[in-house]
């Protein structure tokens, strides 16, 4: 048992230890009803993190997710009256398109993904400010309930939000492990140069990965918007840090190639438990960002594959 063979098991061990610790401090944490609510609450973040997993898996990053979610909250609120549940399609298309453009700019124009996605995020912010007229908008309650009220019902005791999350997880997992695209993702993440040499259309794979990241961010934004029954250009701010944390503590390293969406599910649960612990320990909400920033540094340091950096860390 060396450290390297143990490494893939870190995330769930961490989760288990944290759950036991929090449970010992506060036995009511295990109350199924409360736990279910806690999990339903974190669903938008989970969906965003799941999309981000694809971008990180190929060794990139997507810093536009938060802004994409923002613009979608505005789009959903503004166009709910016109399209009803159809806004979901528009939202996902917007996310997919923004992601694809980021991917195109990264692969074909050679702009590093952290710059291209940051820049596309600001284009999205422009759009959100324009559509919302820089005001906080709210949804018409009846329209919202007619189109999306079912999201907050329960099926056989399970909140529908959780079921949506599980369906998306199953879909992403299938895509990642059971399709040619998934294998190509793995090839690109494990060694881009080798993937190019073996004749794989690496650019296409990467563009699709960023597009998926955008589409998931849009779904997250849509759910968040419906949840809060409104939209504005800053509504989803604060999601970016937590989404990156969820992916990295889950065990998908910044260098890509290993991990995946199931890891991100574990990572999101870790984020949830840390949050719950902070509430219980009465750590002020203002300190959350600091705590998660430090968790992020620790998670990167533990998971990153330094052999891939070839001695040079820029």
């Amino acid at each position: 048992m060396t450290l390297e063979t143990l490494k893939p098991h870190f995330p769930w061990i961490t989760l288990l230890v944290l759950v036991v610790l929090v449970g010992a401090l506060n036995p009511s944490f295990f109350d199924p009803g409360a736990l279910m609510l806690l999990m339903a609450d974190i669903v938008p973040l989970f969906i965003m993190a799941m999309g981000m997993t694809f971008a990180i898996y190929i060794g990139g990053i997507d810093l536009s997710v938060q802004q994409l979610a923002n613009v979608v909250t505005v789009v959903a609120t503004v166009y709910l009256a016109n399209f009803g549940i159809g806004v979901a399609v528009i939202a996902i298309l917007i996310g997919f398109l923004f992601g694809a453009i980021s991917g195109y700019v990264t692969t074909r124009l050679f702009v590093p993904s952290f710059v291209s996605t940051l820049a596309m995020g600001f284009v999205a912010l422009s759009m959100a400010k324009w559509l919302s007229d820089q005001r906080a908008l709210s949804m018409d309650a009846t329209l919202r309930n007619d189109s999306f009220g079912w999201m907050f019902d329960t099926t056989a005791g399970f909140p529908n939000e959780l079921i949506i999350a599980l369906i998306l997880l199953a879909l992403a997992w299938f895509l990642q492990t059971r399709t040619t695209f998934g294998r190509s993702l793995k090839a690109v993440g494990a060694g881009e140069l080798a993937a190019v040499a073996s004749g794989l259309n690496v650019d296409k794979v990467k563009i699709i990965a960023f597009a998926i990241s955008g589409a998931f961010a849009a779904i997250a934004g849509l759910m968040f918007s419906v949840k809060l029954s409104g939209g504005d250009a800053n509504l989803a701010n604060g999601f970016l840090l937590l989404a990156i944390v969820a992916v990295l503590v889950g065990g998908t390293p910044l260098t890509g190639g290993v991990g995946g969406v199931v890891n991100t599910a574990i990572g999101t649960l870790i984020v949830m438990v840390i949050r719950a612990a902070m509430v219980y320990l009465e750590v002020d909400a203002t300190q959350q960002q600091m705590v998660f920033g430090i968790v992020l540094i620790a998670a990167i340091a533990l998971t990153i594959d330094r052999s891939k950096l070839r001695g040079i860390v820029k």
Partner: peptide, 27 residues
Amino acid sequence: LVHVKLKIPSFMASLAMGFVGTGFALL
């Protein structure tokens, strides 16, 4: 130090430190 000693790419090390900084200012 975080970037060099922990061998974390600078964009990520500094992004994380930025979050910590904003959190610290809030504190």
